[in-house]
Amino acid sequence: MMSEDTTTKQHGMSTAGYVRIALILAAITALEVSTYYVDFGPFFMPSLMIMMVAKFVVVASYFMHLKFDNKIFSWMFYTGLFLAIGVYVAALSTFKFFMA
């Protein structure tokens, strides 16, 4: 049994905090778009992937409150996410998608 007091948690953060998060997201987006114009060479793919994951995690953790909420929610969401990544990456590999 989980404890009953989990509902009394504080909901997220202050308005200023949310605005800061949004500014960070905007900055990463600007950086992402810049890869389209500036040649990142071998760092192109890894940096895009890292920025995508960073944005994803920030929105999920702060805007969707996963960081502050009960861990069950994170488990449910990330189980679905990793299951999706697992099966679809495996399926695409059988098409030799990542060999190119």
Partner: peptide, 15 residues
């Protein structure tokens, strides 16, 4: 669990 049914349901749906 002390958690709201609706929120649990929503997170399952999003998963």
């Amino acid at each position: 669990t002390g958690l709201s049914n609706n929120k649990l349901g929503m997170w399952l749906f999003l998963g």
